[in-house]
Simulated assay, not measured.
Amino acid sequence: MNRYDEVLVALRRIIRATDMHSRQLSKVSGLTAPQLLILQLLRQHGELTVGEIAHGVNLSQATVTTIIDRLAKRDLVRRERGSSDKRKVFVHLTEAADAVLADAPKPLQDSFIQQFQDLHDWEQTMILSSLERVAYMMDAQHIDASPVLDVGQLDRTDQNH
């Protein structure tokens, strides 16, 4: 096999691993990876504004608003106006979200992050540099992306893609 074929196979494995984990997450919890990350962030902080959530998960405020709308329809989050500043709206978890989070598998990026952080600095830099070059070679450097390992639209309604 040519080296470029080996690289393409490795990329395909990464894409397939992400897709398989995404499907498993959806099947087990009924959530997308971005939805799970938002719920986990809210569990850590108690209450956050949409802007704070967007910053915390590295997604646009518009995308987070759409995801929050979908989570609210499923009664997993609720919005409340701030008590001291009525202009601020905070997002809170519901009891239903606590139950979903208890059974949800860990996001794929959690295990990746742990293993990546265990690498030496030079290894991390080499991987980052190589992947940035691959993204450039695939003309993907201009694509807006967040550090959420998931496939499909981040604010999709269809849980099965």
Rank of each mutant, 00 (worst) to 15 (best):
M1L: 13
M1P: 06
M1V: 07
N2Q: 14
R3V: 10
Y4V: 08
E6V: 10
E6Q: 12
E6M: 14
A10S: 09
L11H: 02
R12V: 05
R12S: 12
R12L: 11
I14C: 14
I14T: 07
I15P: 01
I15W: 13
T18R: 11
D19L: 15
S22N: 15
R23K: 12
Q24H: 13
Q24S: 14
Q24G: 12
L25D: 01
S26Y: 02
V28Q: 08
S29Q: 02
S29G: 00
S29M: 02
L31S: 00
L31R: 00
T32C: 02
A33N: 02
A33Y: 00
P34I: 01
Q35R: 08
L36V: 01
L39N: 01
L39P: 01
Q40S: 06
Q40K: 13
Q40W: 04
Q40E: 12
Q40D: 04
Q44C: 08
Q44H: 09
H45F: 05
H45A: 10
E47L: 08
E47V: 03
L48H: 01
V50T: 06
E52W: 02
I53G: 00
I53H: 00
A54E: 02
V57T: 01
N58D: 09
S60M: 07
Q61H: 10
V64F: 00
V64H: 00
V64A: 00
T65F: 13
T66K: 12
I67G: 00
I67E: 01
R70S: 06
A72N: 06
A72E: 15
K73R: 11
R78Q: 08
R81T: 07
S84F: 14
D85V: 03
K88C: 03
K88S: 04
F90N: 04
L93E: 02
T94G: 10
T94S: 10
A96G: 06
A96Y: 04
A96M: 09
A96S: 08
A97T: 02
A99E: 11
V100Y: 01
V100P: 01
L101W: 09
A102H: 14
D103Q: 15
A104V: 04
A104R: 00
Q109G: 02
S111I: 15
I113G: 11
I113P: 03
Q115R: 15
D118W: 11
L119W: 10
L119D: 08
W122D: 09
E123G: 05
Q124N: 04
M126Q: 05
M126Y: 12
I127E: 09
S129A: 11
S129F: 14
L131V: 11
E132V: 08
E132P: 00
R133A: 11
V134Q: 01
V134A: 05
V134I: 15
A135N: 03
M137T: 09
I143L: 11
I143G: 06
I143Y: 14
I143E: 13
D144Q: 13
A145T: 05
P147F: 15
P147V: 06
V148T: 07
L149D: 03
L149K: 03
D150W: 14
G152W: 09
D155M: 04
R156Y: 04
R156V: 02
D158R: 08
D158T: 06
Q159S: 07
H161S: 11
